[in-house]
Design a binder for these strands. Structure first.
Lengths: 227, 227
DNA sequence: ATTTTAAAGTGTAAAAACAACACTTTAAAC
DNA sequence: GTTTAAAGTGTTGTTTTTACACTTTAAAAT
């Protein structure tokens, strides 16, 4: 057995999660940020966060915290990095684990967001954030871009059914560069896990655009590394 | 100011670091593992780890822990992931941040390693490890491979000066696949930050092989993502 | 009924990157 | 001077990526 002293001679710290919540609307990525009407750092902008509770995993804490703010329970989420500088929170020592989440911006619970005094802010207009939250956003964006470059996580920012124009606009926003329509569609056509639903979206054009969906059964992750 | 209760109503946990220490010898990657002659889990295999102390960042704790075992202070290290399941350590709740380190296996301090009852184990022969350390190793290997595929971190596993044959053998070990000698050398030749030193290594062949080194001044990270 | 409009949809050719492939050179050891 | 074993070196075919502009469609306006 482990001697009690093995653990007890060492300090304990608060552990928190901070969530970088991405949305997509009108061709732009945005973040859900709190304008804090509570302490500490009242009046400043921050990420949504919370403390990890007894018996709760850090992953579960991140899901709880995002659900408290958005009302959404089954989001795509991924751990980004852990921030462990002793003075990162000026109040007390808090080790914080950052997660990013991808939200279909049509679906979040507006009342909850308003109640938290939270706002969707377009990425280029993100204000200075408290503590190391600005660094967290940079790291999360880099990591989300990486993941979006190797697997179709970006689709979690769109409705279940989406047009190819929507999809292209999304990827242009994620990678910050415009893409050739024909080349983009050729690439999508080669992905059998993105399939036509047969339905047509008429909201964006008179002609109508074919709706597609992601088929998870046809998607098999592949990881091939090269130097 | 932050009300005291803001923090104090929340629990605190032990925070530890666990280190996946990679070495390279005889064409194989290996890990430095402890055969634990101490509690908890005496007699089992584990990663080198330790608790984060007051006033110490998690990064600093990881460096300290690796230095305690190897005597080496300036290793390439990178945070991998944080493991926060409430029952991951059967003794008490411990949130653990994993880091990987790359060691030039010629340089570590043998006395320290022996004193810790630690051994270099070739990757395919890694035994079952305690707690979630096996998962940590898988995650670290995947992440190290990814990093090695986008930047020349692998070079930290070699001496300052190395031959192209050594470098190719290293990458073959990292990616688990053999590579064409001419294509490999063409790629290296296109990397101006890997430069000939003018010296020759005579230990591996009568003819001698040119020695190369990494020139950090010529290396500029580039990150371009594509879908 | 015809014309206008605005987004959806479509193919080809050049360039670049990657993959496959085998012999020559060198210097020490015998 | 012959042998040995690793170091070193180019070309060609294939695949992938990029650049580029017009046609189709269906509703709205006339």
């Amino acid at each position: 057995m482990a001697p009690k002293a093995y653990y007890s001679i060492h300090p304990k710290f608060h552990v928190s999660v901070d969530c970088i919540i991405f949305g997509f609307e009108d061709g732009e990525l945005s973040l859900l940020l709190l304008k804090r009407n509570f302490e500490p750092a009242r009046g400043q902008w921050s990420l949504m966060g919370g403390f990890v509770e007894e018996g709760e995993s850090t992953d579960a804490a991140a899901r709880r915290v995002v659900a408290e703010l958005t009302g959404l329970n089954d989001l795509y989420m991924s751990q980004v990095h852990t921030y462990g500088a002793p003075d990162r929170d000026p109040g007390e020592r808090v080790v914080s684990v950052a997660y990013y989440a991808l939200v279909d911006i049509k679906k979040y619970n507006r009342e909850l967001v308003d109640a938290h005094n939270a706002f969707w802010v377009n990425l280029p207009e993100v204000p200075p954030l408290i503590f190391d939250h600005g660094t967290m956003v940079e790291d999360a964006l880099r990591f989300m871009r990486y993941q979006a470059s190797v697997k179709p996580v970006g689709i979690n920012l769109l409705p279940e059914e989406f047009t190819l124009t929507q999809l292209q606009t999304l990827y242009e926003a994620i990678f910050g560069q415009s893409m050739d329509k024909r080349n983009f569609r050729k690439r999508i056509a080669s992905m059998d896990y993105i399939e036509k639903t047969g339905r047509v979206d008429k909201t964006m054009s008179r002609r109508g655009a074919a709706l597609y969906r992601f088929n998870p059964d046809k998607y098999h992750e592949q990881s091939i590394f090269k130097i």
